[in-house]
Design a binder for these strands. Structure first.
Length: 898
RNA sequence: GGGUUUGUGGUCUAGUUGGUUAUGACACCUCCUUGACAUGGAGGAGGCCGGCAGUUCAAAUCUGCCCAAACCCA
C-alpha cells in the first residue's frame, strides 16, 4: 500500500517539477561523450538536435510550441531508449527589428549614438525578450540542456560567424565563396539596407497603369505603358517582343524620354510580354529584376535615380528630393499637363516588399559583399537529408534552382556581426584586407588589422568596414556550433526541426554554409512542422480575435494537456487547428490515468516490482501481451516522428485495455483472491502501469514524473528511466497450451465476454454488479481457459463449454471472403457473391460442413468455392420456455441465465 | 499564371501494399452512483470518404479532369 493523494493538481505539480529538473540537470547530455557548445572534442553523442534559435520577439506563440513540442517528444523518447541526447537552445539575436524597437523606445536614431553604445542598448533589449520566451519554454516543460545555451550576439558566437566568413573568403577567386562587387541588390528604403532575395516578399496590390507617349527622334512617336512614371528619369531603353508585328519595322528607332530628355533606343527582346499594355516597355535602372536582366543583356547605361532613403536623387532634376510616392504623382501630373499622358487604368501588380517592414523594395546598384550560391553543391547535399514530410525536399529544390542572384550578405546596419575587413586608406589603392582567424573576434571600426601596412601600396592607415553581416550568416552555422565547431571534426547533427516558412532561408543557407565549410550535410533529418491555426480554421491573429497563447492554455488546463493536444492535432508536417476540446480531453485522460494509478497503487507495495515468477492467469498474460504489442508499435511511431499515432495507441491501450477491461477483470482477485493469484494480478498491473507511464513521459513529463515519484521500486526521474522492454509479454502471444490456444486468444475471449455481458446488463436495465444464476460460454477454446476473473467480473458462475449450446441455431446469412473469391473468379466474383447471398443458407452450411467446399450454379455454370472462404452467419435461439439470454460475440456464444 | 499539399459524420482527425461493417475524440440523445474515476460507465443516432469520369472482380485508397482551401514561387 502506497500513500497516493486523491487527486492530481497540475497547477502545483508542474512548477514543482520544473524547478526540480532545473536544479538536478536531468537533461544535460553526457559531458564525456558529447561535443556541445562547451567545446569538448570527439563525439559519440547519439542524438543531437539542431534547435532553431528563435528571434527574440519576447513572445513564444503556439506555432513555436508545436515545433518545440516535436523536438521535446523526440528528445525525451531518445533519452528513454538510451541515446545520449543533446537538445540545446540558441537565440538568433541580431537584426533589424530589434534596432527599430530600440530606436522607438529610446527615441533616438541609430546614428545619434556611438555604434558600441547602440549595440549595448540592443543587447539589453534582447536579453529581456529572451527571458520572456524562456519562461514560456520552461512552463511548457521543454527539456533543453541549458548548459548548451547560446546567443548569436555573444562574442564567442559571433567570433565563429566571423571565422566562417574568413574561411569562406579564403583562396583564389575560383575557390572563394565570398566576393565584393558592385551589383544591383534588393534595397529596403525604410531600413536603408540591402536585403537578400529570401527577405523579399511579394505583395499583390492595385496600381495605376499610365500610357505615356515618347516623342520620336527622326521617326514616329511611340506609346508605352508603365505603373512607375517616377522611374522615367532612370529610363535607359525600350523593348518590344521581336515577333510583335506592330513594331517589326521600328527596332532601332530612337525616342526622347518625356520631361527628362535623355535619348533611348528601341530594342527587341524575347522576354517582353506583347500582350501587356502597348507591347512596348521602358527599361529603367532599376524597376525590377527584369530590368536588371535587360540592362546587363543589352549593355545599357546606368542611371540611378533613387537614393538609399527612398527619395529621388540629382538625376531627377527638378524632382530631386521628392519621395517615391510623391514623385509618382507629380510626374504623372506633369506628363498629363505636357500632353504626354494618354489613358490611365487600374491594374493588378505584384510588388516586392521588405519582409520585416512591408515597405516596397527598390533595386539599387551598390558595392556589397556576396556569397556565391553554388546550386549543385547544395542540391547534392539536400538530397542526402531525410525530409519529413518528404515533399519538403521538393520545395527546397525549387527554391534553390530558382536562385538568380548570389547571396548579398552585407547590411548597412549596426546590431549584427561585423564584417572583419578593412579598406586601404590610400584612395588610389583598392586593396581590401580580410582578417585572419587568430585576430577574431574583432570590430574593424574599432581596431586595425594585425597585418600592419597595406601589402599592395604600403600605406599604413586602414578604414574599417562599417557594413555588418546578414543575420542568416549567424544562424546558418548553428549545427556546426552545436557540434563544437571549430574544435574537432564536424559530424552532422541528427535532427533539424523547423517551420516550412524558413525552408528558403534558414534551411537553404544552412545547407549552403555547412557544405561550403565542412562539405557535410548539416543534419540527417529535417522535420518540418505545419502551422497552428485558430479554432475557426484561420491563421491566428489578434485582429481576428482567434489567437491563443501557450500561457493561456496552460493556465486553463495544464502544460501536459496542451502538449498532448498539439501531438494529436495531426501528423507532423500537416497544419493543425488549435482546439480547446482537444486540450480538455487530454486533461481528462490525465485525470483518468491518475485514477487508474491511484487504484492500482492501493495494491502495490515495495515488493510488487520485484515479485518473482508470478502465477499469471490468462487475463494477466493477455494484458501483458497487449502491452508488449503497444510498446512495440509506439516505439516504431516515435522513431518515425508519428507522435499523433503513438499517443493515440497509448491512450487506447491505457483507457480501453487496461482500465475498461483488465482492471474490471482483476478487481475480484485484487480484493479477495488467494495470495498467489492476487500477487500475479498485482505484478501484471504494476508492469502495465509502469510501462505506460514511461511511454507517456515524452508527452506529459510533469504528470508522469509525479506518478513515477509515487510508484514503488523506482528511483530518480522517469526521464532518465528506460523505455519498456517488450519481452515480458511477447512470448505469451506465441505460447500455446495443449489445445493450441494462446493466452492472448483466451484473454480476448474473457475480455470480450465480460464486456458483452456488461453491455447486456446495461441494456436490460440491470445494475452492472447484479448477480446472475449462471453463464455458459461456448467457444472454440472449449473448456481450456480460466473462468475465475470473468466470474468475478460478471458476478456469476461461469461454465466454459465445448460444442454447441442446447439452443436452436438458424443460419441467417453469409459472409464471403472477397479477398479469396475476388481473385479466383475475377469478373464473375460479383455473381458468385450474389448467388451465395441468395442461396439457401441451410444448404450452404451443410455443404460446407460435409464437403468442406460449396458448389453453386452461377450463370449456368457450376462453380466450387472452398469452404474457408465463406462464413455462415448464424443466430441462436433459445428453446422455448427456458429463461435464457443468448449473446453472440465474435468468438463465442454466451448463454446467460439471469 | 506555375508548383506543392489538403478535401472523410456537426467539429477535428486515423485509415498501412486497393478487399466490402470507414477510426477515434469532442458535441448530441437514452440509461446507469457498480467496492479508482460522473473529468466515469453502457448504449444510440449521425457519412453517397469534395464532384465527375476511368482502371479493376473490388476504390476513401490508383489514374485523369473539374471544384474548393492553404502554402510556396512568378
Amino acid at each position: 500500500m502506497t500513500d497516493v493523494p486523491d487527486s492530481y493538481d497540475p497547477e502545483t505539480a508542474e512548477p514543482k517539477w520544473q524547478d526540480e529538473w532545473r536544479q538536478s540537470g536531468v537533461y544535460q547530455h553526457d559531458g564525456d561523450s558529447g561535443t556541445g557548445a562547451d567545446g569538448d572534442t570527439d563525439s559519440n553523442t547519439d542524438y543531437v538536435i539542431d534547435t532553431p534559435p528563435p528571434y527574440p520577439t519576447g513572445q513564444l506563440h503556439l506555432g513555436h510550441a508545436l515545433g518545440w513540442s516535436y523536438m521535446d517528444f523526440a528528445a525525451r523518447f531518445h533519452r528513454l531508449v538510451g541515446d545520449d541526447v543533446l537538445f540545446p537552445q540558441g537565440w538568433d539575436c541580431h537584426g533589424l527589428p530589434t534596432e527599430v524597437k530600440v530606436e522607438e523606445e529610446e527615441d533616438i536614431h541609430r546614428t545619434d549614438v556611438p555604434r558600441e553604445e547602440f549595440r549595448e542598448l540592443c543587447v539589453e533589449y534582447t536579453e529581456d525578450r529572451i527571458d520572456g520566451m524562456k519562461e514560456t519554454m520552461q512552463s511548457l516543460g521543454f527539456s533543453q540542456d541549458w548548459s548548451a545555451e547560446y546567443r548569436t550576439m555573444d562574442a564567442d558566437y559571433w567570433a565563429k560567424t566571423q571565422r566562417s566568413f574568413v574561411e569562406m573568403a579564403a583562396g583564389d577567386e575560383d575557390e572563394s565563396y565570398v566576393y565584393r562587387d558592385e551589383h544591383p541588390v534588393n534595397w529596403c528604403p525604410r531600413c536603408e539596407t540591402a536585403i537578400a532575395d529570401a527577405e523579399v516578399e511579394n505583395v499583390d496590390r492595385e496600381g495605376t497603369l499610365h500610357y505615356v507617349t515618347f516623342p520620336g527622334v527622326g521617326n514616329d512617336d511611340i506609346e508605352i505603358a508603365t505603373t512607375r512614371p517616377e522611374l522615367l528619369a532612370a529610363c535607359v531603353g525600350m523593348a518590344v517582343d521581336p515577333d510583335d508585328e506592330r513594331y517589326a519595322e521600328r527596332i532601332g528607332d530612337t525616342f526622347e524620354v518625356p520631361l527628362f530628355g535623355q535619348e533611348i533606343e528601341l530594342l527587341a527582346d524575347d522576354d517582353v510580354d506583347g500582350d501587356f499594355g502597348t507591347g512596348a516597355v521602358m527599361i529603367c535602372t532599376f524597376g525590377d529584376k527584369q530590368d536588371v536582366d535587360w540592362w546587363a543583356e543589352h549593355d545599357l547605361d546606368l542611371r540611378p535615380v533613387f537614393t538609399e532613403d527612398g527619395h529621388l536623387g540629382d538625376l531627377a532634376g527638378e524632382y530631386a528630393g521628392l519621395t517615391i510616392e510623391e514623385a509618382k504623382k507629380t510626374i504623372a501630373d506633369d506628363l498629363d499637363e505636357a500632353g504626354y499622358l494618354g489613358d490611365t487604368e487600374p491594374t493588378d501588380q505584384s510588388v516586392g516588399a521588405c519582409w520585416r517592414c512591408d515597405t516596397p523594395i527598390e533595386i539599387l546598384s551598390k558595392e556589397q559583399w556576396f556569397v556565391e550560391v553554388r546550386q549543385d553543391e547544395i542540391l547534392e547535399k539536400a538530397e542526402q537529408v531525410d525530409w519529413i514530410p518528404d515533399h519538403m525536399y521538393d520545395r527546397l529544390v525549387d527554391w534553390t534552382e530558382g536562385m538568380e542572384w548570389d547571396w548579398v550578405i552585407s547590411r548597412q546596419r549596426v546590431f549584427a556581426t561585423p564584417i572583419p575587413a578593412w579598406f586601404c586608406g590610400n584612395d588610389d589603392c583598392e586593396h581590401v584586407h580580410v582578417a585572419s582567424i587568430d585576430e577574431l573576434p574583432l570590430d574593424p571600426t574599432e581596431q586595425d588589422p594585425a597585418i600592419g601596412d597595406c601589402p599592395e601600396c604600403g600605406a599604413s592607415d586602414w578604414e574599417g568596414e562599417t557594413d555588418v553581416m546578414d543575420t542568416w550568416m549567424d544562424s546558418s552555422i548553428s549545427p556546426m556550433h552545436v557540434q563544437g565547431w571549430p574544435d574537432g571534426e564536424f559530424t552532422p547533427t541528427t535532427l533539424r526541426e523547423q517551420g516550412h516558412d524558413i525552408i528558403r532561408t534558414w534551411a537553404f543557407y544552412t545547407l549552403l554554409r555547412v557544405t561550403a565549410l565542412e562539405d557535410e550535410i548539416p543534419w540527417e533529418e529535417s522535420l518540418v512542422n505545419g502551422m497552428v491555426f485558430g479554432e475557426d480554421g484561420n491563421k491566428m491573429s489578434k485582429s481576428r480575435g482567434n489567437a491563443v497563447g501557450p500561457e493561456e492554455a496552460i493556465e486553463e488546463y495544464s502544460a501536459d494537456a496542451v502538449r498532448q493536444a498539439l501531438a494529436l492535432g495531426g501528423q507532423p508536417g500537416s497544419d493543425i487547428q488549435f482546439q480547446w476540446k482537444e486540450v480538455k480531453s487530454s486533461s481528462r485522460f490525465v485525470t483518468k490515468f491518475w485514477n487508474i494509478f491511484q487504484f492500482s497503487a492501493e495494491h502495490f507495495d515495495e515488493d510488487t516490482p520485484e515479485m518473482g515468477a508470478p502465477a499469471y492467469r490468462d487475463a494477466d498474460e493477455w494484458i501483458l501481451t497487449k502491452l508488449s504489442r503497444t510498446a512495440e508499435a509506439v516505439e516504431a511511431d516515435m522513431e518515425a516522428y508519428r507522435f499523433d499515432s503513438a499517443l493515440r495507441r497509448l491512450r487506447e491501450f491505457v483507457w480501453n485495455d487496461l482500465a475498461d477491461d483488465y482492471l474490471e477483470l482483476v478487481k475480484g482477485r485484487l480484493y479477495e483472491g488467494r495470495p498467489g493469484e492476487r500477487n500475479a494480478a498485482r505484478h501484471a498491473l504494476y508492469t502495465a502501469v509502469s510501462a505506460s507511464i514511461r511511454m507517456l513521459a515524452p508527452f506529459s513529463p510533469h504528470f508522469t514524473e509525479e506518478v513515477y515519484d509515487h510508484l514503488p521500486g523506482t528511483e530518480g526521474s522517469v526521464h532518465v528511466a528506460s523505455w519498456p522492454e517488450v519481452e515480458f509479454g511477447a512470448d505469451a502471444a506465441d505460447v500455446r497450451d495443449a489445445e493450441g490456444a494462446t493466452a492472448e486468444q483466451k484473454g480476448d475471449l474473457i475480455a470480450e465476454v465480460a464486456s458483452e455481458i456488461r453491455a447486456w446488463k446495461s441494456d436490460a436495465g440491470m445494475a452492472l454488479n447484479a448477480d446472475l444464476d449462471r453463464v455458459e460460454v461456448y467457444s472454440e477454446l472449449g473448456r481450456g481457459w480460466d473462468t475465475y476473473d470473468l466470474s468475478e467480473a460478471v458476478n456469476a458462475p461461469v461454465y466454459p463449454e465445448e460444442g454447441r449450446p442446447n439452443v436452436e441455431l438458424v443460419p441467417v446469412g453469409v459472409d464471403p471472403d472477397h479477398s479469396v473469391i475476388g481473385p479466383q473468379f475475377r469478373d464473375k466474383a460479383g455473381q458468385v457473391v450474389g448467388a451465395l447471398e441468395s442461396a439457401d443458407f441451410n444448404q450452404l452450411k451443410n455443404q460446407k460442413e460435409i464437403e468442406g467446399e460449396i458448389t453453386l450454379e452461377v450463370g449456368g455454370e457450376e462453380v466450387t468455392i472452398e469452404g474457408e472462404a465463406v462464413e455462415i452467419e448464424e443466430e441462436y435461439r433459445a428453446e422455448s420456455g427456458e429463461e435464457v439470454e443468448v449473446i453472440e460475440t465474435d468468438d463465442a456464444t454466451v448463454l446467460v441465465f439471469p
